[in-house]
Simulated assay, not measured.
Amino acid sequence: MTKFLLVVHVLAAIVAVGPVTVAASMFPPAARRALAAPDDTGAAGTLRMLHRICRVYAVAGVVVPVFGFATASRMGVLGDVWLIASIVLTALAVLVLGALVLPAQTALVEGGGTVRRTARLAMFTGLFNLLWAGVTVLMIVRPGSTTGA
């Protein structure tokens, strides 16, 4: 059962978190292009599509921590420092996505954009991606783990 939970956890991370990180990273340059050519309907459509990918896959990403907790519980590592650190980083990533990235994308999609806003969004997106990179490293390295990594 532990292997099944771990497989679902890892697959969900790849399938749900991966597209959000890529689409969120693509959004600021696409927004700059859309601002430079306000009459280009293709650029506006690209922004809407990238924003939708971020929103939909962010919701699907809920599966990742759910199966992560289930896996950690079965493995008996819920109190390990590496896991607690990864939970904190995940919570911060969720907060950055939900409170900073998605609202900034929404504002840009709805036409309330400036080049400065796209730069700020790029910074928030970079922070979001760095947080997920930290979680990934912790999941692989598991410092102090006694589970045989």
Rank of each mutant, 00 (worst) to 15 (best):
Pro103Asn: 06
Ser73Leu: 13
Ile53Gly: 07
Thr2Pro: 00
Arg32Asn: 13
Asp40Lys: 04
Thr21Cys: 13
Arg32Ala: 12
Val96Asn: 07
Gly79Arg: 10
Leu47Lys: 04
Ala133Leu: 15
Leu78Val: 10
Pro29Val: 14
Pro38Lys: 08
His51Glu: 14
Asn129Thr: 10
Val81Gly: 08
Asp40Gln: 09
Trp82Tyr: 15
Gly112Val: 04
Cys54Thr: 11
Ser145Thr: 14
Ala107Ile: 00
Ala122Cys: 08
Pro143Leu: 11
Ala37Glu: 12
Asn129Cys: 11
Ala16Ser: 14
Gln105Cys: 09
Leu11Phe: 02
Phe128Asn: 12
Val56Asn: 01
Ala43Glu: 02
Gln105Leu: 02
Leu100Glu: 05
His9Phe: 04
Leu35Asp: 05
Leu6Phe: 10
Leu83Thr: 03
Ala30Glu: 03
Val7Trp: 13
Ala24Trp: 07
Thr147Asn: 12
Ser25Asp: 06
Trp82Glu: 05
Ala34Cys: 03
Arg142Met: 15
Thr118His: 00
Leu6Tyr: 07
Pro65Glu: 10
Phe27Arg: 01
Ala30His: 01
Leu138Tyr: 04
Ala104Val: 06
Leu108Val: 05
Arg120Ser: 11
Pro103Asp: 12
Ala36Lys: 04
Thr147Leu: 14
Ser145Val: 05
Thr136Ser: 13
Arg120Thr: 12
Val141Asn: 01
Arg48Gln: 10
Val22Lys: 00
Trp132Val: 09
Ala23Asp: 08
Arg120Gln: 08
Trp82Ile: 11
Lys3Glu: 14
Ala30Lys: 08
Val64Glu: 02
Thr147Ala: 14
Leu121Ile: 12
Gln105Gly: 06
Arg120Glu: 07
Arg74Thr: 15
Gln105Thr: 06
Thr146Asn: 06
Gly111Glu: 01
Pro38Leu: 09
Pro143Arg: 14
Leu97Met: 15
Arg48Phe: 03
Ala122Thr: 05
Ala16Ile: 06
Val62Gln: 06
Gly76Met: 10
Leu130Ala: 15
Val115Asn: 07
